[in-house]
Each structure stands twice: as structure tokens, then as C-alpha cells.
Design a binder for these strands. Structure first.
Lengths: 223, 223
DNA sequence: TCCGGTGACATAACAGCGTTATGAAAAAAA
DNA sequence: TTTTTTTCATAACGCTGTTATGTCACCGGA
């Protein structure tokens, strides 16, 4: 109504509205006009603040990585690094299931408005994986994994959990094939393949269940 | 030029053009106007033949599953079902790397024109997994995997390879972390986790390399 | 206090998208 | 041959991201 809106926080307002739109109605609801209308301004606000829709989406992708890192930081480093790793996997999955549309934009290439990640964005994502690399290092030092490249182990685990989460979000996993079962089996398999012996891997993964409620704040171990 | 184009094969022509556009220029090149112009007709051809862009994209998704199944059928069933399984994984990955944009549409949710998979499409995808389930059954019968649900094992392996391929296509995997290494390690881990002992799993996966050239027609085992 | 400059935003437009109503003409059925 | 059905061209509607232009609010200096 007033010809001049004296709101210095237009930028974060737009991000919040866009995030709400993405989470609530999915990627196709993310349009410059919709965001602007919801904010009570014109589409130009998107361009002065973010240089276009791509910039706004990029901002949300970074926010998505921040949320993932926040989940990671909730996992404590205990004397059982393998159990820690299992919990990091749970945290990864929980973050994806909590923010499915955001996760799809981050990794699935769900294209809102011709957005596509650039090299810097991907580096941003790999940086977030630092927590996992550090945990893999502890696993190796503890003799639970074969001595080797911790970064490679982290990428292995990443691909595993990412694959599970992606198909789960895409509703490809069949009903009787419980995602939780697949998750634990996959994790155990990878740990055993990385050098751990079967019994201790199973024990560590199972023991991480008890930490779900306290560290990830999830009363339901979803399985 | 002629007021009536006497081409009874308009339908398959449109599919071919669309497939070429998707493979050559990516999802954003898939537009009704573009396809129609390339075919020398109007956008209405897309609607009479496919009911809209979604129908055309859906047709290509089905084509994608057919190609995947064609790759699968190139893998012979030998006396070493674990090696067969490793080769099926290679075939899956090769299909994805050969048709990256199509794969992204099939699983990544790369949204050309507001297309989204429905329940039938997903069932179509799971059906393609039948070859893997059958191979898992043979692994179990041969005592190489713990006796259990073959479909669950197949889904495990699917999530594993899918995760790897997705991050590989998204260029998330770092350079020194060779995708081939991750692939074999992940496969070995899953097989060991599924009941196989480490040595024979490693041996079977490694032995499948020699079958790459003959069965998948790939002279380069890409590590 | 005024005054010019700078930045943020509104307005309106352009090109492109999927989609649809209408109509003409070819093919098929009678 | 006549009628019906199907296929497609034309044009439009509403939507998208984006941009050129203009207008105001703010801010530093005189």
C-alpha cells in the first residue's frame, strides 16, 4: 500500500518465504512471482537481492547444507566410532526425510526455474562431509576399519545412505522392504567390507539405536 | 508446407526427437514447442499423441527402463552368481552413464515441464529389478548369500549402486576418490554383509572384470 | 537544511513455457 | 459417395524468468 516498504530485512524474509513454499508445496511452487507476492513486494526484490531465482535457490541449498551439518553436530563422538558412524547415517537420513523437497533440490536436480548447481555449490556439499571423514578417521585409528583413505570410506558411506534416501524419497522402495532394515544391512555391509568383523559391526550399529532418542531427539526409531 | 503431413509415424518420430533433445541438451531443452518445431509440426501433435508433455516424458521414462533391461539381458547367468551380480551392477552403472539425462529424469526427479512419476511408473521401475532379484535368488541358493528375502537383497544392491551413480552423475565424487574403487568396495561390502565371506566376494567381483568387454561390450573396464 | 547520488523497488513489457478452444482438412467408416 | 472420426494448425490464455525504465527512500556532504 505504502509506496515505500521500509523493511531492511527483505533478504532474509524472501529466503524464509521461499523455504516455506518449497517445504510446504514442493519445487513447482517456487516462483519469483509467488515468493514476491507472499512477501508483499514485486519480483524485482528477488533480482536486487539474489540476482535472480537461481541465486535464491542457491541460498536455500546452502541453508540445506547448514541444516545437515546441524544434524551431524548433534551426534557425539564416543568410544565406539562405528556406532557414531551409524548414528551419522541416521542423522543424514533424518535430515533428508525432514526436508525432502530441499534435499531433492540439493542432490536430485529437482530443477526449480532452471537452477543447476555449480562447482562451488558441490564443494560446499563435500565440505559438509567433513564430519563423516573425521569419524572415519577415528574408525581407522581404532582399528575398526582397514587403514586407508578416510575420505574414500566417507564417500562410500555417503553413496550408500544417499542411494537409500533417494529411492526412499522417490517412493521406489517397496512396502515390505522396510527402509530401516535396508539401512542397517547396508551400513553393516559397508563396515564389514571396510575391515570390521561382522559381529562387532552388527553390535555397533544396533547399539546406536539407543542413542537415537537422546542425540537425534527422535522418540521413534522408525522401524 | 503441404497442409496435411501424411506421416503415420508421427508418434515415434516425436519420441525420437525428444529423446535426442534430452540426451543432447538436457532436460531444459525438452519443451513441446521445441520438439514440435524439430518435427516440423505444431505443439498439438504432442497432445493428440501423448496427451501433453507429461505423456511424452513418461514414454521416454519407459524407454529408459527398457534400455536398462536391455543392458541387464547382456549379462549371462554363470556358475558364479556373485560375479553375475557384480556385472549387473556394472551394467546398471553403464546404462546410467550412457544415458545420464534420461537417468536423471527416471530417478532424480529432474522435472521437465512439471512431470512427476506416478505409482504405475514406479512399479514399472521395480519390475525391471526382476533380473536382479532372480540373480539374488541364485546367490542365496548357491549358499553365497544368507538365506533370506531375495527382493530385499536386490533392493539393498539397488540403493547402493543408485547412490553411487547419482552422486557420480551429479559430479559430487571427488577426483582422487575413483568411482570404480567406490563401486567395487561397496559391492564387496554388501556381499560380505549379506553372508558371503570376504575372500570369495572379492574374488567374484574382481573376476567379473574380465567379462566386461565380452558381455557389456566395454573395452575399457574404467578401473 | 538542502541537495545530489545511490540503491531498492514498482511497473510494464518481452520471450518462452504448458495448455486449450476452435477450425480445417485428411483419413476412415458407412 | 457421404458421414464420421481423427489429426493437426492457428491463436490465445495464464504462467514462468527476466529486463528496461522510472520512481521513490535513504544517505553523505555542503
Amino acid at each position: 500500500m505504502s509506496p515505500r516498504r521500509t523493511d531492511p530485512r527483505t533478504r532474509s524474509t524472501l529466503v524464509d518465504i521461499a523455504a516455506g513454499l518449497l517445504a510446504g508445496e514442493g519445487p513447482q511452487a517456487l516462483s519469483a512471482r509467488r515468493v514476491a507476492a507472499e512477501a508483499g513486494s514485486s519480483t524485482m526484490a528477488v533480482y536486487t537481492n539474489f540476482g535472480g531465482m537461481s541465486g535464491l535457490v542457491r541460498e536455500m541449498v546452502h541453508e540445506g547444507f547448514a541444516r545437515l551439518e546441524a544434524y551431524f553436530s548433534q551426534v557425539a563422538a564416543t568410544g565406539d566410532p562405528v556406532a557414531d558412524m551409524a548414528l551419522l547415517g541416521r542423522a543424514y537420513r533424518r535430515n533428508a526425510l525432514t526436508n525432502p523437497h530441499l534435499y531433492a533440490v540439493m542432490f536430485g536436480g529437482a530443477n526449480p526455474a532452471g537452477f543447476s548447481l555449480n562447482a562451488e555449490d558441490r564443494q560446499y556439499g563435500r565440505y559438509t562431509l567433513g564430519t563423516v571423514v573425521e569419524c572415519a578417521t577415528r574408525c581407522i585409528e581404532a582399528g575398526r576399519f582397514d587403514s586407508g583413505d578416510a575420505e574414500l570410506v566417507a564417500h562410500q558411506l555417503w553413496t550408500a545412505v544417499h542411494g537409500l534416501v533417494t529411492l526412499e524419497l522417490g517412493e521406489y522402495l517397496i512396502e515390505p522392504c522396510n527402509a530401516g532394515v535396508v539401512f542397517e544391512a547396508q551400513l553393516i555391509g559397508l563396515m564389514v567390507g571396510a575391515g570390521d568383523d561382522v559381529e562387532s559391526a552388527v553390535r555397533s550399529v544396533r547399539s546406536s539405536r539407543t542413542r537415537l532418542a537422546t542425540e537425534l531427539g527422535d522418540p521413534d526409531p522408525d522401524e
